[in-house]
Design a protein around this nucleic acid. Structure first.
Lengths: 221, 221
DNA sequence: CCTGATGGTAAACAGATGTTTCAAATGTAA
DNA sequence: TTACATTTGAAACATCTGTTTACCATCAGG
């Protein structure tokens, strides 16, 4: 314990390398050499590269789900059975997402990791995240359901994922997009600023009018 | 030329494997064995794996940009200097995107590839796509600019990318999302149906009210 | 027939990958 | 100190990676 712990030094290095280059493109040798740790340390402490990847996510997701559950608890007691407005729900989620990584590394890394979790092959990761942290998301969507009673269930499901795409895509590709925005519009924007800009867009998207008429899915009932 | 050409057999196999597992996770041996082609054929016909990846994209993007340019030409003559409404622009783009892959493989593969192009490391890919096909996108955004005159340039830029995130995220992760939607809401949805549902959402998002007040970027002018 | 490409093939190459092994170091408790 | 468990270390392991080499088949034009 003379310096920082070997385990956390591996995690710290792994998360930024994963975020920069993806999982398959980041070798254990790259991680361990940059972290100034022996190569075998990863397999000793985590068992495998897969488990390392999951551990990197757990370090973000575990505190996030805890805080988000707490925030939702507080919201539910504050509104005491009344319907919590959509704006409040979204605002709460945004605040929690912004809070958690602030303690450790940057939000950018967290979002980039989330984006990778969806886009990279890594089927084990999606399964792990779903099984381990799916409950908060279910609770949140249930509250959103009460906040948007006239939206058909399927429609709300899709729109929530539309917006999830907006957030993850934008925040995970942040650096590239920010470069373009800065060059073309001299618009240097922070993450918080971006989230602020997203709010009215997301609210408008969720409360958009329904599409013309449902035709194709008629026989699915 | 006894059977299908070696080159197209490689491309056909590569594009679905890339879409399924990503670029780094797909080996040339996997591609060539499934395509029943010799391993060396890839390097013989394409030169390298990098060039193979670019060739896979070119096969989609080249016809797409051609058609999209043509569609925009037709729109501009039809509206003869008048401003083309936002809905028409979006509808045109959606139609072109739906048309092109219909000729060859499924739209899903194309979208998944696009999503990978953004999220995977592969810096060479982003550069290639930008240099080769950036012109159509610039032309499109200029038309969108005229269609939304009261939107600040930077705001429009970000909202367009918000919506790009919606489309790519949803359509590239389509299979997983569709499984959930079908299980939870018995809502079996086609790609065209999904695009139809996206339209009002995208329009509402683009014409959402501006965020409260711009503070952080004030000194950037 | 010969010549010279062109496309295909098997084998080898050089290097990187995740993982394992086992001995040395370190810390901890008796 | 002794005895034991935990942690580090260097090296090897087996496998997989993209790429190259050299050889064979086919077929056109002289």
């Amino acid at each position: 314990m003379g310096q920082t712990d070997t385990v956390t030094r591996i995690l710290d290095t792994a998360e930024v390398l994963f975020a920069e280059r993806g999982f398959a493109e980041t070798s254990l040798r790259h991680i361990t050499s940059k972290a100034k740790v022996n190569l075998a340390a990863v397999n000793y402490h985590f068992g495998s590269k897969k488990s390392l990847i999951q551990a990197v996510f757990a370090r973000y997701l575990t505190p996030f789900t805890e805080r988000f559950h707490a925030a939702l608890d507080e919201l539910e007691t504050r509104y005491a059975g009344e319907v919590i407005p959509l704006e409040v729900l979204l605002e709460t989620m945004a605040r929690t997402v912004l809070e958690v990584p602030a303690e450790r590394n940057s939000l950018k890394v967290f979002m980039r990791l989330l984006g990778l979790a969806y886009s990279q092959a890594q089927g084990h990761l999606r399964r792990y995240i779903q099984e381990e942290y799916g409950s908060v998301f279910s609770r949140f969507t249930e509250l959103v359901r009460r906040a948007t009673p006239d939206l058909p269930d399927a429609e709300r499901f899709w729109r929530l994922h539309f917006m999830l795409g907006t957030v993850i895509f934008t925040l995970s590709g942040l650096d590239a997009l920010r470069d373009i925005a800065e060059k073309d519009y001299s618009d240097r924007v922070s993450v918080r600023e971006l989230v602020r800009r997203m709010r009215p867009v997301v609210v408008a998207a969720m409360s958009a009018p329904l599409p013309d008429t449902v035709v194709a899915t008629a026989e699915a009932s």
